[in-house]
Design a protein around this nucleic acid. Structure first.
Lengths: 106, 106
DNA sequence: AAGATAGGTGACCGAATGGTCACATGTCCA
DNA sequence: TGGACATGTGACCATTCGGTCACCTATCTT
């Protein structure tokens, strides 16, 4: 399993993306705290967090009996860089904004 | 199945990412042409291209009996925007470049 | 018209994935 | 010290996914 394979596989599940959303909103949460926002057992959440950590999308730090989780955005940026040319970045970004606005209105 | 779910699922497979790489290098290829670069039957490649198209990562145009495939980078940009804050974008980008350089050297 | 070429459909099978549970370890606090 | 709390492990099962095949339609060329 290559490095980027782990990243893309990790992002393929909606629960794991939601976990990233939670951490994007506020970092440094524990497993129990993250679990409370999901309709799933602790074990399911743990498995998801492990995959995110192995992919490098989440980094952790232990503090006593707690494990704190932090979002690491670098792999996301690398995805972007893989298929978006530096020279065409500006127009693509404009299109992305347009699409986001249209969806907000509807 | 939501829109972004389709995108992330589509990106989860290495063959599909390689197809995007091929189209990023040069657009407008046919199924047969894309198939020739892969060790897989035409049917496998067809399935992958269909998922990429349903995700909006690839757009197509028919020309006679041929179907031409083009890369659409907009969904990629939206992934980026989801977890990378506009205000912290610059430092993250710098880190991403550093990581890419380090991997080139090793 | 007829063969060759490009693409398409539905069924099928082995492998990987998402989720749960019984059970276990380490840490905090009364 | 003992119980409550936070996290961890391995086995297990249903579902999804990647890939192939038999068979089919549409277009081009001579």
């Amino acid at each position: 399993m290559t490095d980027d394979d782990r990243v893309f596989k990790a992002l393929a599940d909606p629960t794991r993306r939601f976990l990233l959303d939670l951490l994007f909103a506020r970092d440094g949460r524990t497993l129990t705290e993250l679990e409370s926002g999901l309709e799933m057992t602790r074990f399911g959440v743990m498995k998801h967090l492990r995959l995110l950590e192995e992919a490098g999308l989440v980094v952790t730090r232990k503090s006593g009996r707690e494990k704190l989780h932090f979002l690491n955005p670098v792999p996301i940026r690398l995805i972007h860089d893989r298929w978006i040319d530096k020279y065409t970045e500006r127009p693509v970004s404009a299109l992305a904004e347009l699409k986001a606005e249209l969806e907000d209105e509807s």
